Amino acid sequence: MAEDIMFDKDKLEAVLKRMIDAKPTTFKEAVAKPKLNKDGSPRKKKSVQKMDRPSPQG
């Protein structure tokens, strides 16, 4: 077996308690929230630019 992983039991229990006590969110609620950058500012949505393709008929 690989090396044993050491962890702080109190911190783990605190995180688990917070997760259990948190109100569940629906998919629509999760998608409605803007995604954030690492610095906390909202991310801009990527825009896709359509390219003109030549028609297959020539």
Rank of each mutant, 00 (worst) to 15 (best):
P24C: 06
G58T: 06
L36M: 14
A14P: 00
P54Q: 13
M19I: 11
T26Y: 08
K23R: 15
K45T: 03
E3H: 09
K28E: 10
E3V: 05
E13K: 09
A2Y: 09
M51H: 09
N37I: 00
E13Y: 08
V31I: 14
E29P: 00
M6Y: 12
F27H: 08
L12P: 00
D4K: 11
A14L: 08
I20A: 12
K11A: 15
E13A: 11
R18S: 15
A32T: 05
M1H: 12
K45N: 04
R43M: 07
V31R: 06
K33M: 06
K50H: 11
D8T: 03
P42D: 03
R18Q: 14
G40T: 05
L12H: 09
Q49P: 00
K28F: 10
M1I: 08
R43P: 00
V48E: 04
F27N: 06
K50P: 01
L36E: 01
K50Q: 10
I5A: 07
G58F: 04
R18Y: 08
G40Q: 05
A32R: 01
D4I: 11
A2S: 13
K50G: 06
Q57F: 13
D8K: 06
V15M: 12
M51F: 15
K46F: 07
N37A: 10
D4N: 04
S47V: 15
T25W: 09
M19P: 00
A30M: 10
P56E: 10
P24K: 08
K38H: 07
V48K: 02
K38L: 10
D21N: 11
A22C: 07
A32I: 01
A32D: 10
F7Q: 03
Q49I: 15
